[in-house]
Design a protein around this nucleic acid. Structure first.
Lengths: 109, 109
DNA sequence: TTTTATTATCGCAATAATACGATAGACATT
DNA sequence: AATGTCTATCGTATTATTGCGATAATAAAA
């Protein structure tokens, strides 16, 4: 065991979980916040902002790229990372849908 | 290593990441969806709905309870789990804040 | 071609997360 | 007191994640 049983859940449930997992680390939150705030999105800038080693930052960027939230654009010798607006809108819609539900306060009564 | 360096990030960044981590598993998404949809929130019902062992479901419930999204109410011999509206609104606000930001499409140009 | 600058990947170590059987705990009912 | 029902916890095996030094890869510039 030790592996998530993705096959028993719906595609949407897995997608929501994957998107949430991409946001489930403070460094990746910091990266996204920086890219939303600053126009500059060069990897080296992020390495300066984040108190993590270059290899670690690169790894977090890779995860965000894999899920689709970011895409990288080679601009030698630098790489410019940008938020992928399509996936960003997808995530916005998915989380919006979840949180727009009203909670039954008097549950089980 | 292998442990997240939480101390170098802000409380808010860590909180966002923790809330996202709570949502970062399809079983926990399914649990939340079920609690939002159905009035029944008894642990046993969730065990029937989810194709996971009782121990595993209980463990996921515990994680959601630890982060504050759920609270359990003992109703012997059952336990009724409900969404904690305070934390739910907090999460809604936090994720809403992130996603309301406009993305600069023409990044690095 | 060599150097320089920047980023990605590899390899490793350590911790975290997932899953479940077995068992313990809580509490009403018999 | 004994039983039955439901849930939590423990122990364990397996896989995933985090972090970083070292090194490779890429491409412009000297």
């Amino acid at each position: 065991m030790g592996v998530t049983k993705t096959q028993v859940f719906t595609d949407k449930q897995n997608r929501i979980a994957d998107l949430a997992k991409a946001l489930a680390h403070p460094a990746r939150i910091a990266i996204i916040q920086h890219l939303l705030k600053e126009k500059s999105c060069v990897c080296g800038d992020l390495v300066e902002v984040l108190p993590l080693a270059q290899a670690t930052v690169s790894q977090h960027l890779k995860e965000l790229k894999n899920i689709g939230i970011l895409h990288g654009e080679i601009n030698p010798p630098r790489v410019c990372y940008c938020i992928n607006e399509t996936v960003w809108q997808e995530a916005k819609a998915i989380f919006g849908e979840i949180f727009e539900s009203d909670v039954a306060v008097t549950c089980c009564k």
